[in-house]
Design a protein around this nucleic acid. Structure first.
Lengths: 258, 258
DNA sequence: CGTCCCGTTGACGGCGCTCAAAACAGGTGG
DNA sequence: CCACCTGTTTTGAGCGCCGTCAACGGGACG
C-alpha cells in the first residue's frame, strides 16, 4: 500500500486523496504542510490552556486526553488511537476573521494531550488544514466521520459516568479494551495505570483496585503485568450491566442487545 | 435576512450556500431534499435502536438526547438547540457500500431524541446529505464546526460527571443556562424538570431538589415556576468549583471558549 | 372535589471516598 | 547479588455523601 510523507496508513489526508485522485503525484501535495513528529511515552503534546495552532493526526500509538479543575482534580476525557484527530478545537471555518478579537487565533486547548506509548503524529497548521478541507470534499467527509466517532465515544463515556456503579464502570472499561477484530484474543494490553483508570471512570485508585481484586476472586479476569486477561467474558458483560464502551463495529449491528 | 425553504436562519445548509453562491436561486437547490417538520413539546423524534435514515437540522426549540440502559436507567447526553444537528450517526462517507453487510444502511440511533419545546426541524436523508457534502466544501466546514462544538459540550459534561460533587454539578448546570449574549439577564428559562436535571447530572431527583433548596437558603438563587433566577453569580461560580459549562463572561478568559 | 404529577423534605443505609499502612516491582549503586 | 529508595498496587478501617424509601404539599386538570 502506498504511503505518503506522513507514513501513516490511516491518515485522513493521504488515504482520502489516494482514493479520490487519479494522479499519484497529487497524493501528497499536502506533503509540505505536514510535519511529522515522533514522541516517546509520557510526553506532553500540548497543555490545556495553551493556544491551539496545530491539528494533530495520530499515526501510531496512544494518546490520553485529560482535563483538570483548578484544584488539581483530573479527568481523562478519552484515549485516542491511530487514525484519530487531536487538537481540533481552533478550526474556525468561517467567522474567525469576522468576529472581532485578536485575529481569531487565540483559541486555547480545552484539554491536555499526553502520549501513553511511543507515538507518531502528523502536525498541520489549522489554516493549512482549513484550505485543504475547502478544496477536498473527500477529506472533509473523512474528518466528519472521525469527529462523529469521537462524539459517539464521548457519549458512551457520559452514559457510563452518569449511571453506572463502580463495578459496572470497571467491567465496561475492561471490555472496551477488546479490539474490534478480536475473535478470541482475551489477553488485552492495559495502557492505563490504576490511577488513570480511576481518573477515566470518575473513581479513586483504591476503588478501582478493589474492584479488580473482586473480579480476580470471582475468576473473571487475571492481571499479569501491564495486561488484563479476560477469563469469563459473558459474566463480565453481565456485570458491565448494559451497553459497553466498545466502539461499534461498522456495518454490523450497533447497540448489541446483550 | 433571506430564508430558504426550511425557514431556519441557522441552517447549516442554507446559510452556507447563501454565503458561497453568488446566484440567489442556487441558495435553495437543496429545497427538494429537505422536509420541514414541526413538533410539539414532548414528542419523540426518534428512538434509541431505531434505524437511522435521516439527519435533522434543528431550527427552533430544544431537543434532549437521552440514552437508556436495559434496566431502565436513563442518562441525558445533552440538549440541542437551534442550529445544531441530530441523528448524524449513520452518515458513512465511504465504506458503507464497500464493506459487506446489509447495504450498510442498518445503523441504529445510539440515543433517543425528544422535544422539550415546540420544535421546527429540517429532515434530510443521509444519502442526500452525503451528496451535498461532497459538492459543497462550505457546508462540510460548517458541519465540522458544529460537530466540534458538540464534542466540546460532551467533554465538559464528562468533566462535570467525572469529578464534581452534587452541589458543584448543579451550580455548573445552572450557570450553563446563561445565554452567550446575556449581559445581565439573570432570570433563566429552565427547560428541564428536576428529574431531567438529575438524569443529566448523574444524580437523583431528591439530591437535585435538596441542592436547589440549599442554594435557595443561601440566597444564591430563586426558583419561580419554570425559571431560575441567579441572585449571586459570583458565589454560585465559586460553588461550581472550576470550569463551568457556561460561556465565559466577557473580559475574563477561563478555559474553553466554545 | 378527586386524581395525577411534580417538587420537597425527612430518616436511614450503603457505596465509594478518605486516611493510613503494608506489599510489591523497578531502578540504582554498592 | 543484595541493600536501598521510589512509585505503584493492594488491603484495611472509618466515615460522609448521596441514593433509597417514604410521606407530604401544591398546582393542573378533568
Amino acid at each position: 500500500m502506498y504511503r505518503c510523507a506522513c507514513q501513516v496508513g490511516e491518515c485522513v489526508l493521504c488515504e482520502a486523496r489516494l482514493a479520490s485522485g487519479p494522479a499519484r503525484e497529487h497524493a501528497c501535495e499536502v506533503r509540505g504542510l505536514l510535519t511529522r513528529q515522533t514522541h516517546r511515552p509520557r510526553e506532553i503534546l500540548f497543555r490545556q490552556g495553551e493556544p491551539s495552532e496545530h491539528l494533530f493526526l495520530l499515526g501510531t500509538g496512544q494518546v490520553k486526553l485529560m482535563s483538570n479543575l483548578p484544584d488539581g482534580r483530573e479527568q481523562i476525557l478519552g484515549v485516542r488511537i491511530a487514525g484519530q484527530l487531536l487538537g481540533f478545537e481552533a478550526l474556525h471555518p468561517a467567522g474567525a476573521a469576522e468576529r472581532g478579537g485578536a485575529a481569531g487565533g487565540d483559541v486555547q486547548h480545552p484539554y491536555t494531550a499526553e502520549t501513553l506509548t511511543t507515538v507518531e503524529v502528523c502536525r498541520i497548521r489549522h489554516r493549512d488544514m482549513l484550505a485543504i478541507l475547502e478544496q477536498n470534499p473527500a477529506v472533509s467527509l473523512r474528518v466528519i466521520e472521525r469527529l462523529r466517532q469521537e462524539l459517539d465515544q464521548a457519549q458512551v463515556l457520559i452514559r457510563d459516568l452518569g449511571l453506572k456503579s463502580a463495578p459496572e464502570k470497571v467491567a465496561s472499561f475492561i471490555l472496551s479494551l477488546v479490539p474490534d477484530d478480536a475473535a478470541r484474543a482475551d489477553i488485552l494490553l492495559m495502557p492505563l495505570s490504576r490511577l488513570e483508570i480511576a481518573e477515566f471512570l470518575g473513581l479513586t485508585v483504591e476503588t478501582v483496585s478493589r474492584v479488580f481484586a473482586k473480579f480476580r476472586r470471582d475468576d473473571l479476569i487475571r492481571t499479569p503485568r501491564g495486561r488484563v486477561e479476560v477469563l469469563n467474558r459473558a459474566h463480565l458483560s453481565s456485570v458491565a450491566g448494559g451497553i459497553s464502551a466498545a466502539p461499534t463495529p461498522r456495518g454490523e449491528r450497533a447497540l448489541p442487545a446483550y
